[in-house]
Amino acid sequence: MSDADVVVVSVARTPFGRFEGALRDLDGPALGALAIDAGIARSGIAASAVDALYGGVGMIASAMLTPVRQAVLSSSLPETTPSATIDRACCSGMTAIGMGFRDIRLGEASVVVCGGFESLSRTPLLWPRQRARRLGDVCVEDPLLIRGRVVEQPIAVYTGEESIRRGVGRAAQDAWALESQQRYARAQADGYFDFERFAVEVPGPKGTSRWVTADESPRPDTSLEDLAKLKPVYGGKTVTAGNAPGLNDGAAFLVLCRRDFARANGLEALARIVDYAQVSGAPTSGTSTPATAIARLADRAGMDACGWDIIEINEAYAATPLVSTLALAGGDAAVAGRLRSRTNMHGGAVALGHPLGASGARIVMTLINGLRRRGGGRGVAAICGGFGQGDAMSITVE
């Protein structure tokens, strides 16, 4: 242990809401402010002690100017708290933690709040400002189709093609989706997510309000037969509404500090952040970029890329952890199977949801929880981001 270690002293996330579900009336900064305040309150650190805040937002900057600054101004943090909005698509929340980690390692800060938020329910349609002709129809774009100029196909389509090319077909993806739902259901019944999740008050009819306490997306009654009946989306080959997450709303933030700050202030270090890596590859390589990022961390640590006690790989699609674990195993199906037994052990985004900017932070806190429950160990969390990006973060619990 070192006084300069970067440790996590609190985690907090909202329940993850369905598209146009319970959280639909709260915009991204409002959700972010709730998670920021919950994280600070759980840490026991005074808001005035926070040196900076980094927040990830994955979809068109939450349709507003500098949304993370707006979240800071809506939170208990002083208005003098510097902040930055991070956009690396689904990697954004983990990238935000990585930036805080680096600030503390470099001596630029002692306490940083990091995470992200998303309100896909409030993502607007895009109406073009310029038109070729003054008369005629207007083509309105929906960013929630999740495609871009660099690749003509929606991400769900090329993900299916990439997974087949790498030896992971539709049946395997459906089976993983079912396992994700079942693992989540067992963890939820055991109170596993109480460590990270807090209740959110939302507006009700006629001036009333109600509390949202649980994630909305899980489908514990899912069966392989039901999954097999679903057609692939956008005319693709493998990705369906059943083996991919829905569109979701939510926020997740962690409080990081130096170990000597935690000790001096009587704070419990929940975990130590060991290392962080960013990678990029071909625009359609997202199913394997988590493996690339994990392998980079393992190489830096001088360890076997398969040697982690617990692994979290964000289920952007069920294909993602399947392809990435197979890549980490060097194509060996038996080794990949052993890796998968300790990957997303408490369910993943297929079950609980994927608010783009929040998911990178969510999988880090879920990893910390798992390591603490097993009595310690080392783990890694990894996530892909749009058009070939990837992040990974290694964590140790003593």
Rank of each mutant, 00 (worst) to 15 (best):
V202H: 08
V157Q: 01
C90T: 01
V202P: 07
P205N: 09
I311M: 12
M393P: 08
P143N: 07
G17R: 06
V113L: 10
A132N: 12
R149N: 12
R183Q: 09
T66K: 07
K229V: 12
A22D: 13
T95Q: 15
I36M: 14
G39I: 05
A316K: 04
I146Q: 04
V57W: 00
M393N: 00
I164K: 07
L230R: 12
G28R: 00
I164N: 02
L352P: 03
C257T: 15
Y158H: 15
A12L: 07
Q70K: 15
I383E: 06
W308C: 00
L322P: 05
D51K: 03
G32V: 03
S75G: 04
G286W: 02
L34R: 15
N248Y: 09
G390H: 01
P321N: 07
E141A: 14
V7L: 06
A244H: 05
V7R: 02
S10Y: 05
D249Y: 03
T213Y: 06
S76I: 13
A305G: 07
M345V: 15
G100E: 11
T85P: 00
S43D: 00
A71R: 03
V350C: 15
V7F: 04
G377Q: 10
E79K: 10
V323K: 07
I45L: 11
S48L: 01
R340A: 14
A61R: 15
F19M: 12
P67R: 11
E162F: 11
V202G: 07
A333Q: 13
D304K: 02
R258I: 04
A177F: 06
A89C: 10
P283D: 06
A187I: 04
A381V: 10
C139Y: 14
Y317C: 01
S280W: 02
G379R: 11
M303Q: 15
S285K: 09
R129W: 08
M365C: 14
R340Q: 15
G236M: 08
G98N: 09
R259C: 05
V140H: 00
L73Q: 07
T238P: 01
L135M: 13
G236C: 11
G331L: 06
A262C: 08
A61G: 10
D275M: 06
D174S: 00
I311E: 01
Y158W: 15
D194Q: 11
T80E: 11
R373Q: 14
